[in-house]
């Protein structure tokens, strides 16, 4: 298990508390949407960073008014074929202007790294240890893009115009 953030291996300060019955007293944690809704005040009273996980059937509208409280939003991919969170990422970045960490968790494949990157996901929870080098290679798979998105890369249409 490793965290890749903004293209490099990063130390993960967060503990995933989604499945814990009692929340740790200190330290950065990631909670589920239910936990956030049920323990909102207690979570806000903690003196540490907070992240929230959106399952693939939990639309970002459900946290639209709370985004200022989160240091990260984790988007869950229950299966690599479930592509809803790609749209969630764009909605969070483009419509809600969420600028902090967007982390992909779950069934995240090497081959999807670039797609995720382009919709605004900047951190990846990856399983397996031999992957790291390959992830770096995959990140360099493409240098040109047809679609304009908000990830800062210049689209081919704009490149053509020089």
């Amino acid at each position: 298990m490793a965290l890749i953030k903004d293209g490099v291996e990063a130390k993960d300060s967060f503990v995933n508390a989604c499945h814990l019955d009692t929340l740790p007293a200190s330290g950065d944690i990631i909670v589920s949407l239910d936990q956030w809704n049920d323990h909102r005040d207690a979570l806000l009273a903690r003196d540490a960073q907070l992240g929230v996980t959106l399952k693939s059937d939990q639309h970002p509208d459900s946290i639209a008014d709370d985004l200022q409280h989160f240091a990260l939003v984790a988007l869950e991919f229950p299966a690599f074929t479930d592509g809803r969170a790609y749209s969630y990422a764009r909605i969070l970045r483009d419509q809600y202007s969420f600028a902090k960490e967007l982390r992909a968790v779950g069934d995240v494949l090497l081959e999807q790294l670039l797609y995720m990157n382009r919709v605004g996901i900047n951190a990846f929870d990856i399983v397996g240890d031999n992957d790291l080098e390959q992830w770096k290679v995959a990140a360099a798979d493409y240098t040109v893009w047809y679609q304009p998105t908000n990830d800062g890369r210049t689209s081919i249409r704009d490149l053509r115009r020089g």
Binding site: F80, T81, D82, G83, Y86, S87, R90, Q112, L114, Y115, M116, N117, R118, V119, Y142, W145, Y146, Q147, T149, I156, R157
Partner: peptide, 14 residues
Amino acid sequence: RQWSTLHPEFSYLP
């Protein structure tokens, strides 16, 4: 064709 080729958001549709 250009817009849809490896569209980052729409490559894992239902």
